[in-house]
């Protein structure tokens, strides 16, 4: 199977993830979009690793997984804090930083 197909798949997944982040108001869904984008990037890294026959891409994928795990912890905590403060997890609701 041609590894380049995985790159195309990664692109599609990344696009879906980005669309989820940009288009959905629900923080949980947007968050899932972020996860999807990270994993799309992981898939691309592994695919490139395979194409070039080097291990670097796969090592990088592990790093991304660790960072993603940490990010999930922090991100969910923020969402809970947001919910406690506002009884909503809509991303459009908090706009205090408007200049």
């Amino acid at each position: 199977m041609n590894p380049i197909a995985f790159v195309y798949l990664a692109t599609v997944l990344f696009g879906i993830g980005a669309a989820a982040v940009l288009l959905r108001r629900n923080a949980i869904i947007a968050f899932m979009g972020v996860e999807l984008m990270l994993n799309a990037a992981n898939l691309a890294l592994v695919a490139f690793s395979r194409i070039h026959g080097e291990i670097d891409g796969q090592v990088m994928a592990f790093f991304v997984m660790v960072v993603a795990a940490a990010e999930v912890v922090v991100g969910l905590a923020i969402i809970i804090a947001l919910f406690r403060a506002r009884q909503t997890i809509s991303l459009d609701e908090p706009a205090e930083l408007k200049g």
Binding site: V21, L91, D92, P94, A95, E96, L97, G99
Partner: peptide
């Protein structure tokens, strides 16, 4: 420049993208 500082998380994300 102030107009870009909308406070909307999703527009920031769009800008970054």
């Amino acid at each position: 420049l102030r107009r870009f500082q909308s406070g909307q998380v999703r527009s920031y994300a769009a800008l970054i993208l």
